[in-house]
Design a protein around this nucleic acid. Structure first.
Lengths: 227, 227
DNA sequence: ATTACTAGGAATCGAGTAG
DNA sequence: TCTACTCGATTCCTAGTAA
């Protein structure tokens, strides 16, 4: 099965005429011996999952119909796991206390004016930090499929403030706010920051370590992200 | 790895709090022994791919961050295989001669009028049958993501004609026609039928067994299919 | 009911090597 | 070079049980 996946990968990178593979190369890719690679190919062919045809410099492999079917099963499982059908992106994570920088940044007049203008609310001076759980983290890239509200960067005499992406979000099913994604964040990919018209921590009675869900509506016409 | 996939499937079907699994059930799903299922869970936990917590009636499994990452790799491979980025769905297959029913159906005035009206051409009285190659067949479900042109069914005194879905398509890179998908087809999933303003077989100089490519433009704003 | 240890039989792996 | 066979070494699996 893993061999079939590897071949699918090679196949996708080749044309429709099939991938040119040697047992040695397949072995290297999979971290197994050339002999095992050879055996896998024999087995996969015997199971009707691939078609093989010898070439001078290796062999040409095409995924057979039954092979595609098996791969499609895996694909369906992974699709179900990563992209449960929904009209919103739901992220969950635990609250933690940051360095207090959020308040400083959000209060900057250059940002604040844009928040009021583009989000329609004057943000409480402070951010709520959420460390995403593993599953939410894996789904975070879906944010890139949503049209962001761009808060432009500005200079404030002494220093520069970078641009920020926002996404409207409903926090804990109660409060309308926004997810903030600094284009250059000091946090890793597993953290999101939230703002709202009110102090979320107080309004929701939250303490560090508690789990909060954030729901970000998907745009009605999501545009394809071109990687 | 396969165990992790199975758990991802169960996880997707459960809530965010984790999937409730017993080793026996996992064993049954994977076609292995309860002992092996237990061992797999121990290994996956040791590798940091899942989190486990005992419950009276089994255990609660959550996919860990590293587990999600591994699954995402597989997902990326399969995405590459099944959905190479493109603005169109390209299907290939071999021509074969059907029972001649195509001509009969297409010529029905109830259909023909709608073809003219909705497709903008008067179809040649006959269909070109294509048996899809394995890869194309696996991608055929993508058709469901395209807004179909619906040709409505009708009754003709003596008998009934069912509704038909159409998709505009370019045949062999030359002729603008349409893919026909009868809602109740007598062919299997590996066959598509083509119509065009001209006789495709003659216009393209095609014979049975030859391979033809059909390109179906994807709608600019594909709507999510809700299963 | 669970999970998971142990032991030994079964399956798999890869070094050597032939074609 | 390439693929793929043989065969001994190793890994993996499951039946029997314990907890």
């Amino acid at each position: 099965m893993m061999a079939l996946l590897r071949l699918a990968d090679l196949s996708a990178k080749s044309g429709a005429e099939g991938a040119l593979v040697t047992t040695r190369e397949l072995a290297r890719l999979m971290g197994i011996s050339q002999q095992s690679a050879s055996r896998y190919l024999i087995e996969l062919e015997g199971l009707g999952l691939i078609h093989r045809s010898r070439a001078p410099e290796g062999e040409r492999i095409r995924i057979a119909e039954e092979g595609s079917r098996r791969l499609a099963e895996l694909y369906a499982i992974l699709r179900g796991f990563f992209e449960r059908p929904e009209a919103e992106l739901s992220l969950e994570g635990r609250i933690f206390t940051g360095l207090g920088e959020g308040a400083y940044y959000v209060s900057q007049e250059g940002y604040r004016r844009q928040f009021v203008e583009k989000l329609g609310f004057d943000p409480y001076p402070g951010t709520l930090n959420l460390r995403l759980d593993p599953k939410s983290r894996s789904r975070r890239p879906l944010l890139d499929r949503i049209d962001p509200i761009i808060i432009e960067g500005f200079a404030n005499g002494s220093r520069c403030f970078g641009p920020v992406k926002c996404f409207r979000a409903k926090v804990a099913d109660r409060i309308e706010g926004a997810v903030l994604v600094a284009m250059r964040s000091h946090y890793g990919d597993d953290v999101i920051e939230l703002i709202a018209p009110v102090g979320l921590r107080e309004a929701l009675g939250l303490r560090d370590g508690q789990t909060v869900r954030v729901r970000i509506p998907l745009a009605p016409n999501p545009q394809r992200s071109s990687a």
